[in-house]
Design a protein around this nucleic acid. Sequence first.
RNA 1: GGCUCGGUAGCUCAGCUGGUUAGAGCGUGGGAUUCAUAACCCCAAGGUCGGGAGUUCAAGUCUCCCCCGAGCCA
Length: 523
Amino acid sequence: MSYTLTTPLYYVNDRAHLGSTYTTLACDAIARHRRLRGERVTFITGCDEHGQKIQRTAEAAGLSPQAHCDAVSEGYRELWSRWQISHDRFIRTTDPRHRELVEQFFARVEAAGDVLEGRQQGWYCVACEEFKDDPHEAQDPECSVHRRPLEWRDEVNLFFRLSRYQGQIEDLIRRPGFIAPASRRREVENFVAQGLRDFSISRVDLPWGIPVPGHPGHTFYVWFDALLGYLTALVDPDGPVDLEQVLKRGWPAQLHVIGKDILRFHAVYWPAMLLSAGLPLPERVFGHGFLTREGQKMGKSLGNVLDPVVLLERCGRDAVRWYLLRDIPFGDDGDFQQQRFTDLVNNDLANTIGNLLNRTSSMARKWYDAAVPPAGDAALADHPLAVASLEAAEAVNGALEALDFRAAAEAVLQLAGAANGYLNDRAPWKAMKQPGQEAAVAADLYAVLEASRWLAVLLAPLLPELSGRMLQQLGLEPFASGGPTDAPAGAWPDAQRWGLLRSGSPLPEPEPVMQRLELDSAL
RNA sequence: GGCUCGGUAGCUCAGCUGGUUAGAGCGUGGGAUUCAUAACCCCAAGGUCGGGAGUUCAAGUCUCCCCCGAGCCA
């Protein structure tokens, strides 16, 4: 089984922000889950680097466009590395290989008769890189999105014959699961129902772009070139560029994760382009929501931008991943609230899960020679915690399959709650003071340690690092989920069996696996 | 202005095709406990389900209008 998923190719107009970090973290969790299940994953991310907006941003900074792109895309690379994102490919649309692929793709589209020449006249927003439908006679119109003046353009452009694919696109978006979450589908359906219009795929007098072969003076419209980055990413990094090759390297993608604002491009334009070029279509496009902060939009003008680097340094990867994945329904908009962030991280991770392992391991070490106690009856499959563990595993696997991180996290917490409750009911610290209770206490502690092992197993896709620390605390090896080479196929599913923790195996001295957050000042 | 999605306890959200006293977690208050990261466990208070009208024996759940938020298209 092979699974290809993508983040958007981030536009290098500005540095990475919390939104792109959120998207990328979510994709990372999906990629890790698939790898743990033994699938061959190709996780693609990268940068979209062409367009007039980039050119002007670079000029404003006194840099060449290339230097600007190099700097910003390097910033992304570095950020993903700090977050330990497990992407397999990082594609830049300024990569010379990308240009070759775009040329090959365009040749197919042109051969299919889908490239038309047309005159485009109207008001243009450089920030959107789009023509607006404002009337010709409008006086100093501005872009409703960017509140910046529009520029008058009158040029001959190349158009992609989108109208030809009306029927096929209608069929596609009707397909259950193609547009996710399902609540986003109708919006696209209505858009398509209005009738698809050919859209322009080239610009004239725009040096910072890929030249259109056979059409001097034209460069490709950024979106046309950017979407193709998903294909370039799959081309063999060392061999010659061959479009046909992507079919053997993971295309079609199983999943494009994007922000809800660019759903139309991915669910309508992109599939039509692929149809024209005779390539198969992606299986699913998931449009997630946006993040606000303390109820307000984040923005430079408000000065409330949350820098992912600061967040990482002050709080750590596990905490941020947990908060974003566990508290924000994937697909909906979410609000980053510092108080809630600290509350959830401390409660769930430090207290409920971390402390459970800590208290149990400490008792086991104290009374059973610093080792996993004899299991006794606790090894049986009908032990209450065995049942609870199995249920949690089913819930986690199902939820992750459905991209419902929140439900997965809740299932983990439920198991942790059950284990804490069990411990309190059985009160081994009391029983231990009675004579003849050693075997019963041993079984209870074994059961809770084993349940803790399950917690670590189930957390592996969501919080690989915490999972690893927990396993080490139990004297076990962490799961590798970060790359194609280091995942022994089946190790993770195999770990989902009750009673694998071996009695008598040594337990290291307990150390808190999760530090509580103490955030006195604002981030 | 049009389309789409959302507006349920202080906070984040569940509530399937309308039907007993509207649920969970966090936060708050109280109790119990000491194995543990002032952790864990138990209990409680808190909501006229954005507003208004309507359909129905019965509406958070259906219809219409309005208000607020988000995205898309104008």
